[in-house]
């Protein structure tokens, strides 16, 4: 019998393997909500809370109906909420016309923004993960709709309306009941900043610049060759910076995940 192979000695020297680093191209754009001041936050929440209470907008759900729906028992019933003898709605939104002036929920707000139907967008800050509402930044800015993230929006507004949570709230352009509130809130909303999207104000300046350039072109047509060189120099001296600035290169350097289960590398010649 062959002798058992001895265990390697304790003091055996091993080559230290260099730390593996993964380099990856990071997103050059950082898109985030602008921070809302504490006073403005309290003002917005208080204004909305008072208004919803005064209007009495509430979603009332008939629990019996809900249970029956879950079981799949409702077959022949109409989808519209029925009114009993007293004329009070059993389920649904109490003033329907008021509900139609609002967009409640992320999907509804997104849909309304895509159709350019909103005046103002308010988003809850306690949304986790942030991907749920992050697209609303670009969407609202592209539609030039003021939007901001309000802390405790869901906690304060949802119980008043009779919902579990309100992650996004939009006010439609046809709003009559909330017109004064929207006008009061809009000046307090901080402007959003997306690096690659021009702001509304910037758009105005751009149009002015193009007008001036057009007038310059007309002048160029009238001028002689000698004057052209002078004009070129003038443009070169007083040339404005381009509208889009190139963001610096961002590279992420990561360490491989040690807990990741990796497959062993396949050998070219499979052992028989």
């Amino acid at each position: 019998m062959a002798a058992a192979p001895q265990a390697p000695k304790r003091g055996s020297i091993r080559k230290t393997r260099p730390l593996v680093v993964k380099t990856s191209l990071n997103n050059p754009y950082v898109i985030s909500w602008s921070s809302l001041e504490r006073e403005d936050m309290h003002f917005i929440l208080q204004t909305l809370e008072d208004k919803f209470k005064s209007i009495g907008l509430q979603k009332i759900e008939d629990k019996k109906k809900r249970k029956a729906k879950q079981r799949g028992g409702l077959v022949g019933t109409s989808e519209e909420p029925q009114e009993p003898h007293g004329g009070v709605r059993v389920s649904g939104w109490t003033p329907v016309h008021t509900r139609k002036q609002l967009a409640i929920g992320v999907n509804e707000v997104t849909r309304a923004l895509e159709r350019n139907e909103l005046l103002l967008v308010l988003v809850c800050k306690s949304v986790k993960p942030a991907i749920i509402t992050s697209h609303l930044i670009q969407l609202s800015l592209s539609r030039t709709v003021p939007a901001c993230q309000v802390p405790q929006l869901s906690e304060r507004i949802a119980p008043v309306i009779g919902l579990k949570c309100v992650l996004a709230l939009g006010f439609r352009k046809n709003t009559m009941d909330f017109a004064d509130e929207v006008e009061a809130i809009i000046p307090r909303v901080p402007s959003l900043n997306v690096p690659w999207l021009p702001d509304g104000t910037q758009g105005l300046t751009d149009s002015l610049e193009t007008e001036s350039l057009e007038s310059q072109d007309k002048e160029v047509l009238d001028t002689s060759f000698d004057d052209l060189t002078r004009l070129k120099r003038k443009l070169a001296e007083g040339g404005q910076a381009p509208a889009a600035t190139l963001q610096p290169l961002k590279i992420k350097r990561l360490v491989p995940n040690p807990s990741k289960i990796r497959k062993p590398p396949k050998s070219k010649n499979p052992s028989k």
Binding site: T23, L25, P28, Y29, W196, L197, P198, A244, L246, Q247, L249, K250, I251
Partner: peptide
């Protein structure tokens, strides 16, 4: 990486 960065930003700029 610089080239990738430029192309990505150029796409955004062109669309905006």
């Amino acid at each position: 990486f610089q080239r990738l960065n430029f192309l990505y930003q150029a796409a955004h700029c062109v669309l905006s």
